[in-house]
Design a protein around this nucleic acid. Structure first.
Lengths: 221, 221
DNA sequence: ACAATAGTGTCTGTGAGACAGTATCGA
DNA sequence: TCGATACTGTCTCACAGACACTATTGT
């Protein structure tokens, strides 16, 4: 701990790995990059950055998110820190995983400087198949997926996956995707009713009854 | 991230800070050490160790716990990683906080090599007073206290604060301390009944009705 | 017998789950 | 009018909260 003279210990590299989730076509998707360099060249990996010596972890995460997506001010939280010795075959790198959520309408991404491409991958498909993923990133994704499912139940985290103004059918779909099961409309609405407030807008142009837009009540998060 | 040549980044020191909780005299207590060196000499601090270059985070936490308490095989989990730039006034140290729980009957501790003493401090007293604590450790303690309260409600984490065989009044007390409020006996028992199983033992020697010992059912954690 | 704590029975209210019914749009 | 989706009313059941009652020890 801090009383030690730390110079007797070798220092190590600290990185932040980013899990940027969104919902597209009624599926949970995750932003991944294709690696251009070995190890794991041409394989999918999580985007990430090294933590600068004068940068907090949150700042590094924000910087990484902005580099990959151009987005600022999106929701993110620290997930867990992965510190296996041989995570990276080249050297010791400890990685702090951060999870970010962004509604698909705001989503944006592009290949980074050291990656061939960036794309949204279907999370359930990835986890249930035996697709190889670089480093220990598959495990990290599985961990994040789990956490996301848990937090949906007792927090308002799902609201970060829809725009500020949303319809209840859309929001319900988000809950269903994260929970992996269908919900009853009436019960769902009763449950979230205290968290939201009506707007004056409704959908239009579709061949069925329009739905009202709501927004999150101020008293939350 | 991992595609980078990390040598362009300065490396930093990574530590593990330990929060060893126990319950003594019906109060939540935390193991803290008194610092022998500056900065923060003579102040209370969390025990901790630096993470070795060939050591996982969990291994470092286990090693630290054993150094401070002599205990192995006690419950612990990673809490959160604190990475403010100026946490330590001397140099950049990122710290992964781990929380450990141990029943008071097994508890044991002694001053470390670079500390004056070790002791159990009352967590509520510490947090509600304006006692100074070294580094950002007070914040870490507050965070852990919060997490502990949350996890009591939806996990069996409280079982780690009692011995393998425990009476229900004792267990209830633990819940009450962690939750910060009294519980009804009857309701408490109904709630945890599915998690436990009877033993053949009961308390004796006290001037009132004896209570039965229970143990955790195998199907848990 | 009494003090003290262990342990149980049961009423009530709240909220999740389930399902059926009504409402409102475009075509 | 019809297909399709939005939205609501209500029954049931499980479970948490609250409280009163019974049980068993040592003194």
């Amino acid at each position: 701990m801090e009383g030690y003279d730390s110079s007797q210990y070798e220092k190590l590299s600290l990185a932040v790995d980013l899990l940027v989730f969104t919902i597209e076509d009624d599926r949970l998707k995750l932003l991944m990059v294709e690696r251009s360099e070995d190890p794991f060249a041409k394989m999918s990996a999580l985007p990430g950055v090294f933590v600068g010596i004068k940068e907090t972890l949150d700042e590094a995460a924000e910087r990484g998110i902005e580099e990959e997506t151009g987005l600022k001010d999106i929701y993110f939280e620290q997930l867990y820190t992965f510190g296996e010795v041989d995570r990276d075959p080249r050297m010791r790198i400890v990685s702090v995983a951060y999870m970010a959520l962004v509604p698909i309408e705001k989503m944006n991404y592009h290949a980074g400087e050291r990656t061939l491409s960036a794309r949204l991958v279907d999370v359930e498909d990835l986890l249930s198949s035996d697709t190889k993923v670089a480093f220990d990133h598959k495990r990290i994704i599985a961990y994040a997926r789990q956490r996301l499912a848990n937090k949906v139940e007792y927090t308002g985290i799902a609201f970060h996956l829809v725009e500020e103004e949303f319809t209840l059918p859309k929001l319900q779909k988000v809950y269903e995707i994260l929970l992996g099961k269908p919900l009853y409309k009436a019960n769902f609405r009763k449950k979230i009713a205290p968290l939201i407030e009506e707007t004056d807008f409704i959908t239009s142009g579709e061949a069925h009854r329009p739905s009202r837009f709501y927004r999150l009540k101020k008293t939350e998060e």
